[in-house]
Simulated assay, not measured.
Amino acid sequence: MQDFIAEDGISKEILNSAKLLQAVQVNALILGNAGTGKKSLAKYILPNSDIYEAKILQKDINDDILLLQNEAIIIDKINEITNIDLFLKWLDDNNIRVIAISNTENLNQKLKDIFSINLEIPNLNKREEDTKALVNKFSQEASSILDLPKIPSSKLIVNISNNTHSLRKSIYFSYLFETIGEHEILMFLEKYLSENLRGENSYKDLSYIFEVPLLKASTKKYKSQVQVAKHLGLNRITLRKKLEIYKDLL
């Protein structure tokens, strides 16, 4: 059975609803942004069911090549179903139960009407305890897969901007970062820059690659703009201009 992390109160409520859905034969819709755990929750509800991509499923229904009857299935990206009437007729004719997944609530009303229960999973920035548990899970995973000693939480880079997708990547990067030095960092930068050099203003266009990390590190370490300006060797007016230019990245 696939794990759905539920340490926060709201996640525990969602998991309780999922347990109910294991026992009752109704259609349900799971909503949430990418990386919030929709597939994990769907597999928790239907651990033995296959996951179908909506577009491919619709094509297979249209081509009449599916041999499904009296089954429960998981449908990912249900919002991409376009021939609603064909899809609904197929569900009815074959007695198919659906646990559906969608990144958006913007669904056709006929489609919305088939779901008895909607479960909406919040982003990780609203699930602090879940995030801590996921950090620990991904840290153990990275340590095992990369065959590296587990590193302290203070050294982990935690990026939840894209929920678990970015979080897992940032934790793995934290482990890899422990194995690389200045030479490798410069090598990675050179590769990235060489692939993105274009036009006649490359220096201006790509300078943020150096300046944003430097500004972020400095503002975290020195706290006040006076100290940041002093240690970077900038006057405060120049520092304020740079902070304004990069405010969306800091």
Rank of each mutant, 00 (worst) to 15 (best):
Ile114Asn: 04
Asp205Ile: 08
Ile157Ser: 04
Ser207Met: 13
Ser218Asp: 04
Asn163Met: 09
Tyr175Leu: 02
Glu190Ser: 14
Tyr172Ile: 10
Ala217Ile: 13
Ile180Gln: 05
Asp147Pro: 09
Glu129Gly: 02
Thr164Glu: 09
Leu215Lys: 05
Lys191Gln: 13
Asn136Leu: 14
Pro213Glu: 00
Gly199Thr: 02
Leu134His: 01
Pro213Leu: 04
Asp113Gly: 08
Gly199Ile: 01
Ile209Phe: 03
Ala133Ile: 14
Lys191Met: 11
Val158Thr: 15
Tyr175Thr: 02
Thr179Met: 08
Leu215Pro: 06
Ser207Val: 04
Asp130His: 05
Glu195Asp: 10
Phe115Lys: 06
Tyr222Arg: 01
Leu111Arg: 07
Lys112Val: 10
Ile185Ala: 06
Ile151Val: 03
Tyr192Asp: 11
Ala100Gln: 04
Asn118Lys: 14
Leu146Asp: 08
Leu124Gly: 09
Ser166Pro: 06
Phe177His: 11
Lys216His: 07
Asn108Ile: 13
Leu156Cys: 03
Asn123Thr: 10
Lys204Ala: 10
Lys150Val: 07
Arg168Gln: 15
Gln140Val: 06
Lys216Cys: 14
Arg127Cys: 06
Ser154Asp: 12
Arg198Glu: 10
Leu176Val: 07
Val212Met: 00
Glu195Ile: 06
Leu215Gln: 02
Arg97Asp: 06
Gln109Met: 12
Arg97Ser: 10
Ser161Arg: 05
Asn125Pro: 03
Ile180Tyr: 05
Lys155Asp: 12
Asp147Arg: 15
Val135Gly: 07
Ala142Gln: 08
Val98Ala: 01
Ile171Gln: 00
Phe210Ser: 10
Val212Cys: 00
Ser224Ile: 07
Ser139Ala: 15
Ile151Ala: 02
Met187Pro: 00
Ile209His: 00
Asn123Ile: 07
Leu124Gln: 08
Ser144Gly: 06
Asn118Glu: 14
Val135Gln: 04
Tyr208Ala: 14
Phe173Ser: 11
Ile114Met: 00
Asn103Leu: 09
Arg127Gln: 08
